[in-house]
């Protein structure tokens, strides 16, 4: 199974939808709440080149926003 990391904030609706989507599909992921982990904000910005959440990192492939089509494609769903 591919390693999935999601950078999120607790108040962002698309973060919640992305996480729910992954859960519903039975995909394990690491949730990084950037409001609790300041040092990881920089990591997210470096990876994605921008400051909006959610950001998904699927083994190096970076997805900005809740882009279902790309998530499905990369995960082969």
């Amino acid at each position: 199974m591919k390693k999935v990391v999601i950078y999120s904030t607790p108040t962002c609706p698309f973060c919640q939808r992305a996480k729910k989507f992954l859960k519903d599909k039975g995909i394990e992921f690491q949730d990084v709440d950037v409001s609790e982990n300041e040092e990881r904000i920089e990591e997210m910005i470096k990876k994605s080149g921008q400051m909006g959440v959610p950001v998904l990192d699927i083994e190096g492939e970076i997805i900005v926003g809740f882009d279902v089509e790309r998530i499905e494609k990369i995960l082969g769903l």
């Binding site: 904030t9 607790p10 108040t11 962002c12 609706p13 698309f14 973060c15 950037v34 409001s35 904000i41 921008q50 400051m51 909006g52 959440v53 900005v64």
Partner: peptide
């Protein structure tokens, strides 16, 4: 936009 400018304080504020 998304490089410091945002329309959603609730979502992006914590950053």
């Amino acid at each position: 936009k998304n490089k410091g400018l945002t329309y959603c304080a609730t979502c992006d504020g914590p950053l």
